[in-house]
């Protein structure tokens, strides 16, 4: 039973001092994704019907490697930030919320590293 005053509950444990980092990171990754997504979609459409060798030659060019890695970083960063908010919004038990958020963040990290590794492997085994 919660016998705290309404004011005590409203103040809670105080500020977490970190709300703005998430907010800024969400916006920066969104701004980065706008041109990078267009570049990715434009490039991907260009490979319709192409063979693997064509793609590998394209993916070995330094500019494309850099842009692809930036695209992956921005995409996974933005995705995990957004999913974190969804879980924080809708899951009330603190332990379940924290576990869910941790799973989202580490899964995003795992897939991001795996994707970057794949990009580098394709680029340097040409």
């Amino acid at each position: 039973m919660d016998m705290r005053s309404h004011l005590g509950r409203a103040r809670g444990p105080g500020s977490t001092d970190n709300g703005v980092e998430h907010w800024i990171s969400e916006r920066f990754s969104a701004i980065a994704l706008a041109p990078l997504s267009l570049w990715f979609i434009y490039s991907a459409l260009g490979f319709a019907g192409a063979d693997y060798a064509t793609f590998q030659a394209w993916q070995s060019q330094p500019g494309n490697v850099i842009l692809m890695i930036l695209f992956l970083l921005a995409m996974f960063q933005h995705g995990q930030l957004g999913l974190t908010v969804v879980f924080e919004d809708y899951i009330q038990p603190v332990w379940l919320k924290n576990i869910s958020v941790a799973i989202v963040k580490y899964t995003a990290l795992l897939f991001c590293v795996a994707c970057i590794f794949s990009v580098l492997r394709v680029a340097f085994t040409a």
Binding site: G14, S15, D17, N18, G19, E88
Partner: peptide
């Protein structure tokens, strides 16, 4: 502002 820099108090606004 320091008091409001909180992922719930202010930044739960979507």
């Amino acid at each position: 502002l320091s008091e409001l820099n909180d992922s719930y108090k202010l930044f739960r606004c979507h």
